[in-house]
Amino acid sequence: MPAAGFVVANAFYPNQQELVMMMVYLALAQGINVIYGFTGYLPFGYVGFFGAGAYGLALSVLYLHVPAGVGLLFAVLAAVAVAALLFPLLRLEGVYFAIASLAAAEALYEVISNPSLAAVTKGPYGINLVSAYNANASFVAAVALVAVSMGIVVYLRTSRLGLALRAIRSDAVSAEFAGINVVQRRTVAWLLSAAMAGAAGGTFAWYTSTFYPGAVFDSSISIFAIVFALFGGVGTTWGPALGAVVLFGVYNAVGISQPQYFQLIYGVLIVLLVLFLPGGLGSLVQRLAPRWRRLRRTPGRGPEALPGVGGPDG
């Protein structure tokens, strides 16, 4: 449904690039949702997978001469490979995990942008894919990206895997004694989340077609994704999507020319969220819904008019 929304928006809204970026961020916010909302691991270095995806697509197009659509598979593959390399990080908890993932992403950036590797990665000089540029095809890829990432979250909300992940987040030891293979389930969520960011990075690379390493490893990409997800409410289906659409919309309205304004706004937003609304907008809807229902007493209107927007148990 949101994917269809973007297709419709494309017909009316002149700035296609903004729409593509919004879709990329929607996928990233849902990727954060998968790893943080369902397992409790908060990767501050999430952008590492995005960058890996962008380079996965770019290098496969440049060296293997595959069509960019196939390059998206290499984007996913590259991100999954980085995630597999970082399996040991899952032994860490909380703060250690968050900061170690940040360090890993920075390290990956330093390696890829290193002048010593310029022969392979083009080092700090960036990537040029103009020959593969195709605005319409990459727009379709972005729409598919949204559909798939929404699909993954819907699957997690309804499947045994999702239930197992919520159990692990609740208490890993008890989950083990409910017979859940905690390490394996976490690993699946980690790879899934990495694959989503990789696909997002690949889509971005394809649509933009020229970029510097600093642009696809920019730590503010992780920050945006985390803020969008938290704003809407992690653990829900619609929260992160809502967060990405609303906040990225605000960003486009106020932020592009003066990004500091937006940074200030979302910084304040994070502080307020943590202090006053730790469950995100979703939890607000959930908290207000019963009251609203009591006020209205009209079946079929009230919160039912907002399908799926609910807290962790909604």
Binding site: R166, S170, S174, A175, G179
Partner: peptide
């Protein structure tokens, strides 16, 4: 330490599944 975020039914369904 039951799985605090899950319902009683979900706790048992999960355990029963394995």
């Amino acid at each position: 330490k039951p799985l605090g975020g899950l319902t009683v039914e979900e706790n048992l369904r999960l355990a029963g599944a394995s």
